[in-house]
């Protein structure tokens, strides 16, 4: 369960402040957040992920108001309950694909289940490059690896920032389908934030900032 109440944010030394819509999402629900560039989409996502402290308002995940947590507790909570796909596709470059996933599990404190990892990699069709260093992965493989990284620890909330911006129509649909599918598997809440109107039809539930 995810609730957003009266969330506002103002960057330091900035005149304008952002205020964000209230949300109330249940287990397994999806939400598409649309908005033009510069409207505060990424800010919203970072607020939901506990990466930015809001000026006012609160974000409640599974009855936990995350901004009332201490820094260390928030780090831990984030690691366990939130999975984020960032706009910039990136992984730890000194590691190969499977090591990246294991690192993700290590920091979230979840058990290192090799079977589960293999299953997921297989499902995302990147098991052939699991021992490849991430710097050698193609754009598409990296995209799918970042999806794997966001879901492997079975988070309560999956947040995706512009996951489709660099993809063609076909792959765009594939990626969103994969995300929805993965979220369904673990009954996670999926929030996709994008300016890409192509994906609108794939979601039943959407808001515009």
């Amino acid at each position: 369960m995810l609730k957003v109440n009266n969330l506002t944010f103002q960057y330091k030394n900035a005149k304008t402040s952002f205020s964000f819509p209230n949300l109330d999402l249940k287990e397994g629900e999806n939400l598409l957040v649309l908005g033009k560039s510069g409207i505060g989409k990424t800010t919203f996502l970072h607020l939901l992920a506990g990466l930015l402290t809001p000026t006012s308002g609160e974000v409640i995940i599974d009855d936990v108001p995350i901004y009332s947590l201490s820094n260390a507790a928030l780090d831990k909570f984030r690691g366990q309950n939130i999975g984020v796909i960032f706009q910039k596709k990136h992984a730890i470059q000194s590691l190969n694909s499977i090591e990246n996933i294991k690192t993700r599990l290590f920091f979230s404190g979840k058990p290192n289940d090799t079977n589960k990892i293999n299953l997921l990699l297989d499902h995302l069709n990147i098991d052939e490059c699991k021992y490849n260093n991430v710097t050698t992965l193609s754009e598409g493989q990296l995209q799918r690896l970042s999806i794997a990284m966001a879901v492997i620890h079975e988070p309560r909330v999956i947040l995706a920032d512009e996951p489709t911006s660099s993809l063609d129509d076909e792959n765009c649909k594939k990626v969103i389908d994969l995300l929805i599918q993965q979220a369904q598997l673990t009954k996670a809440i999926l929030i996709v934030i994008t300016h890409d109107h192509r994906v609108k039809s794939l979601f039943s539930n959407s808001i515009t900032l």
Partner: peptide, 18 residues
């Protein structure tokens, strides 16, 4: 150079101390 990676690790649940 790897500030992005370090930030990424933070989103994975790594603490500053780690």
């Amino acid at each position: 150079e790897r500030s992005f990676e370090l930030a990424l690790l933070r989103t994975y649940g790594a603490s500053n101390f780690q």
